[in-house]
Design a protein around this nucleic acid. Structure first.
Length: 415
DNA sequence: TGTCCACAGGAAATACGGGGGT
DNA sequence: ACCCCCGTATTTCCTGTGGACA
């Protein structure tokens, strides 16, 4: 091909892409990429659209005493992931801080983010870092020392101090030590008026707490319900406006994304992810975002979920899954029972130099896979020929193949 | 109706492993 | 560096069970 032809070809292609581009600003489809100011701007719009009104109202009335120089009790916030607990709270605290500074009420808040599990020591250390009380330690410093440093850094401050403890249930060990410190010890040792805000996604969170702490802890509760379709529509519209070109979506797409998302999780982040994937597909195809593309994107996301689930699962689980798939294939897609699956599993273990687990443990893993809906199993009785678990897979063939190949690759097994 | 298959799945024992205390 | 402790994973042991078959 002539060089000039190549050039004009490429130019043409790029022009075509530009003409048909769907995404105006990709960053608004992914929260991770937004800088703080942009996040706040998006939040402003979201809350202006009356989403989370009820919750914000509750928060306001809870914190109102601060502006009257009164001391509100602590606060617990419950809600599933993606219901905007963290966002709403940060947004609210920001506002509150502004109001306080206008009214000359000394107020300070810190956001302790425990989004990944960590022991008490790490949590205290993180808190100390937030308060500039200490640097990050791996070890070599006692809990007591950390607590003293935290207290020391706060001796001069006597305004309001809001500690926003995100995802409390991620404290793995010595939760009680941590809680006792925050709830009983800290308030007595520092002059500041302490208000603790705990966020958790489990309703039963305080139940396995030291009863002494529990009785001492006076809590107000706010519950975040999952977003409904209407909320999601508002949230999505804002994203669409910021991220996509005009006329790049067909009517009903937002409604569909919202409906799908509210039906199975009510998680705003996942809803935006679905929108984002649809936009990506549309751009690749050079069309508008259509209802069909949303379906396509939805099933892709679903597939990805299964794939990553099995990828990140413990090795034994993966082997079990592979064994089940292979056994079913051998039997021409007819359901199989535990013993057949276990036999293949044992063979697989030999190939990978993993020690095979007992049948007892094996059935537990089958159950687990069932829970993840990677397979379906149910107990059946064959009368005089005993009882067993009937195992079948009802995922799309193509997905099963992908999972199978993935696992083999992971263990470098040649089929 | 009773028997008995072949496994399910509960409970308790035991092995394992990572982290804190000394 | 060493040991101990504790939570979790796995094993061991065991009882239970739906229904085909005689």
């Amino acid at each position: 091909m002539e060089p000039t032809n190549v050039r004009s070809n490429i130019v043409g292609q790029i022009q075509h892409m530009l003409d048909h581009t769907i995404i105006k600003n990709r960053r608004f489809l992914d929260d991770e990429q937004l800088i703080k100011a942009e996040q706040l701007a998006v939040l402003d719009e979201i809350f202006n659209a009356n989403v989370r009104n009820a919750e914000i109202h509750e928060l306001s009335s809870h914190f109102a005493p601060v502006l009257r120089n009164d001391h509100p009790v602590h606060l617990a916030i419950w809600g599933k992931t993606g219901t905007g607990k963290t966002l709403t709270m940060s947004y609210f605290l920001n506002l509150l801080a502004e109001m306080c500074s206008k009214k000359k009420v000394p107020m300070r808040y810190e956001h302790l983010d425990l989004s990944t599990p960590r022991p008490c020591f790490r949590a205290l250390n993180d808190l100390a870092c937030l308060l500039n009380a200490s640097k990050r330690y791996k070890k070599g410093i006692s809990l007591e020392e950390l607590m003293l440093r935290i207290e020391a850094s706060l001796t001069d401050y006597n305004g309001y101090l809001v500690l926003f403890i995100d995802e409390v249930d991620n404290i793995k060990r010595d939760k009680d030590t941590f809680m006792t410190f925050l709830v009983r010890r800290l308030p007595q040792r520092i002059p500041a008026k302490l208000i603790l805000v705990f966020v958790s996604n489990r309703l039963d969170w305080p139940d396995n707490l030291d009863p002494r702490v529990k009785s001492f802890l006076k809590l107000n509760e706010v519950i975040f319900k999952p977003y409904d379709a209407v909320d999601l529509q508002r949230i999505l519209s804002i994203r669409v406006e910021k991220a996509l070109r005009k006329n790049s979506i067909e009517t009903g797409v937002i409604e569909k994304v919202a409906a799908l998302s509210s039906r199975d999780h009510g998680d705003a982040r996942q809803a935006v992810a679905l929108l984002s994937r649809s936009a990506y597909l549309a751009e690749k195809a050079g069309t508008k975002i259509s209802l069909e593309l949303v379906d396509e994107a939805s099933s892709q996301i679903e597939h990805d979920k299964y794939i990553t689930m099995i990828r990140t699962a413990p090795p034994q689980l993966q082997i079990v899954m592979a064994a089940v798939i292979q056994t079913i294939r051998k039997k021409q897609d007819s359901p199989i029972d535990t013993s057949q699956a276990y036999a293949t599993y044992a063979v697989f273990c030999n190939k990978t130099s993993l020690r095979p687990l007992t049948r007892r443990a094996f059935t537990d893993m089958i159950n687990e896979l069932d829970m993840y809906s990677l397979l379906r199993s149910s107990v059946i009785s064959k009368g005089r020929y005993g009882r067993t678990r009937e195992i079948a897979i009802d995922l799309p063939q193509e997905l099963t193949d992908k999972i199978y190949e993935g696992i083999l690759l992971n263990f470098e097994i040649r089929s």
